[in-house]
Design a protein around this nucleic acid. Structure first.
Length: 581
RNA sequence: GCGCCCAUAGCUCAGUUGGAUAGAGCACAGGAUUUCUAAUCCUGCGGUCAGGGGUUCGAAUCCCUUUGGGCGCGCCA
């Protein structure tokens, strides 16, 4: 579509004293389709020309070069509007999508550039809770969106597999083991130990010191500490991989904090070499007062490292290994200050690539009333420590169960019945994932079961249902589309609206990458489906398959282009595109 | 106290590089299917775009300010 904009700009530039580039920046989309496809506002010219904007628009319409790819350029009030010729619309949308389905929506704007994305990155030894879904789903979508715009992407899971938490677990585990030699080590058991530790610490503050001592032992290479740590990590990873599979996530590297353990010394040396390390209250910090930030803690009083130091080491490693142009951290906005400090520290360490680092933050998820008691109608913050937590796996399971019921109720065909479990998984998981894409990432979310399990209205299910409907039409058509389709047959207002919407897909993907905002793709897809379904349900005028073979081929071509767009879009978001449901 | 973020219909949200009459979904009230998936579609109802000031031909959008809310501010990550 953007090529039409530049052609319009070129023609306007021929008759007024503005550059093509300036004009492109001024072009707008008219609010109603009958007004035209591209609009040029004439207000800014009014002063210089000392004429009213509508008059200017009328004069420009008289002077501007007419002809393909525009059927008309006309004045509409104070705007000069261009109407794109039907055949040009069809060729650049339906034609383009059919010609190369797998590339439809892709671009090369990121060609030759590398982006490292840090997402997921859970603190292991705790089962994934509902709020972890945000980084997982947003991060995985961004990864795919960047790939679609030509970037070379390296996805890293910076596992939280190091730190005092493991000391806490060791304290708790040793106590449990003393009472029961067969104390299991699996993620459920670990979770219970974790909760128990924090409950016990209420009564015995000394436990905190014991935990720090165990972590120090781990850092110092104590055999038993290492053995316990390894068993905790192994037990944690199993369910993690399982849920990553369900969410369709992918990582190129699992490089947890523990991986950087032996690289920490070099990082601390680098900080020292720049004269940045200062002693403060017995700990070692980087002073950032000059930049309006509190100091960054590099080493604790006992000499153990902190997650800040591990982030610095990880950033150094990532740049050395992948020489990224961009490094995105998909992490909740609670850590905003932390990342500002880390990025500033990297800059002070002399790394000019620090300005390629970006914190992709997102709003917080709280638990609505009814999820854990009524709480006087207030939302509450989940707390893994206190056991106030909704497990992601449980949410997915319930959504799948609900999808299965609805599938069996509708029971459209034998093959739906035969595949009901696969389809229910696709639909249920998709519905839960899609709730992440229903608003911009910065919005806070209040979790309620109703919201998470919603499969009505604007939802992932709506997109998937529309995809199944599109697939069904194509199945019914029952033959390959002819090589030459007469797209000029697509001439109704609804057909034009669908074509125009299909044509906006590449721009939506591009915009999503530019703003690091997968929800842009999601709202685009909802609009696409709405526009298509409107045409589809107008069965009087828009029967897709009819006796008119030429028209049928054109309409099925249009349907297929919508299906390709929807399938590619769903894939970017990580949702399945079922062919029937 | 300081910093970051948020505020649009009863509810959940789009619209944010300034442009034409601020849009969806849910909820509520009606309606559409002998024919391609009704998990759909249509109609109606619903707005001091948190308040105030400013910039501009033009502001939900940019600037200042007030209010309300969320998050953060060294030995958790």
């Amino acid at each position: 579509m953007s090529s039409f904009n530049s052609i319009a700009a070129k023609r306007i530039a021929q008759i007024i004293n503005l550059s093509e580039e300036e004009i492109v920046g001024m072009l707008v989309k008219p609010p109603k389709p009958e007004m035209g496809d591209i609009g040029f506002p004439c207000f800014t010219l009014a002063k210089a020309l000392k004429k009213a904007p509508p008059q200017i628009a009328a004069e420009l319409a008289g002077k501007v070069e007419q002809g393909a790819p525009f059927s008309e350029a006309k004045a509409v009030g104070p705007y000069l509007n261009f109407i794109i010729d039907e055949s040009a619309v069809a060729a650049s949308t339906v034609g383009a999508a059919l010609a190369s389905p797998e590339n439809w929506g892709k671009s090369e704007s990121g060609k030759g550039k590398t982006m490292v994305i840090d997402y997921g990155s859970p603190n292991i030894a705790k089962p994934l809770a509902i709020h972890h879904m945000r980084t997982n789903v947003i991060g995985a979508a961004l990864m795919r969106i960047y790939k679609a715009t030509g970037w070379n992407v390296v996805a890293i899971n910076h596992l939280g597999d190091w730190g005092t938490t493991f000391g806490q677990l060791m304290v708790s585990y040793k106590k449990a083991e003393a009472e029961n030699p067969d104390q299991p080590v699996d993620v459920d058991a670990l979770f219970k130990l974790y909760v128990k530790f924090h409950a016990d610490m209420e009564a015995d503050e000394n436990l905190g010191n014991e935990a720090r001592d165990w972590f120090k032992k781990l850092e110092d290479g104590d055999e038993e500490a290492k053995r316990l740590w390894k068993s905790f990590v192994d037990a944690s990873m199993k369910p993690l991989y399982k849920i990553y599979g369900r969410l369709g996530m992918h990582f190129d590297h699992y490089l947890g904090e523990s991986y950087f353990e032996d690289k920490m010394e070099a990082t601390v040396e680098n900080i020292k070499a720049r004269n940045l390390l200062k002693e403060s209250e017995g700990a070692m910090v980087i002073d950032l007062e000059e930049y309006g930030m509190p100091p960054l803690l590099v080493q604790k009083r006992d000499g153990a490292t902190t997650y800040a130091t591990r982030d610095l080491a990880a950033a150094e490693y990532r740049h050395k290994e992948f020489s990224f142009d961009k490094c995105l951290y998909v992490v909740a906005n609670q850590q905003e200050l932390h990342f500002r400090q880390v990025f500033k520290a990297l800059e002070l360490m002399g790394y000019d690539w620090a300005n390629g680092c970006e914190h992709i933050k997102f709003g917080m998820l709280s638990l609505g009333p009814g999820v854990f008691g009524e709480n006087n109608g207030e939302a509450i913050t989940g707390s893994t420590r206190k056991g106030v937590v909704i497990f992601l796996a449980d949410v997915l399971d319930r959504a799948v169960e609900k999808a299965k019921e609805i599938l069996l109720d509708n029971a459209r065909s034998e093959s739906v019945k035969a595949n009901v479990d696969t389809l229910a998984e696709q639909i249920g998981v998709g519905a839960v994932m899609f709730t992440e894409f229903m608003q911009r990432r910065m919005k806070d979310i209040t979790f309620t079961w109703d919201r998470a399990l919603n499969q009505q209205g604007d939802s992932g299910v709506y997109l998937q249902y529309t995809h199944a409907r599109l697939s069904s039409i194509i199945r019914k058509y029952g033959k390959a589309l002819p090589k030459e389709i007469d797209l000029s047959k697509l001439e109704t207002d609804f057909e034009r609206a669908v074509m125009m919407k299909v044509g906006q897909f590449p721009a939506a993907v591009e915009q999503a990458a530019k703003e690091n905002e997968p929800s842009i793709v999601a709202s685009y897809l909802l609009e696409l489906c709405a526009v298509f379904n409107r045409m589809y349900t107008d069965k009087e005028r828009h029967k897709i398959i009819s006796e008119d073979e030429i028209l049928s081929a054109a309409r099925v071509g249009l349907v297929e282009s919508v299906r390709i767009t929807l399938a590619n879009g769903l894939a970017l978001l990580g949702l399945a595109a079922p062919e029937e449901m």
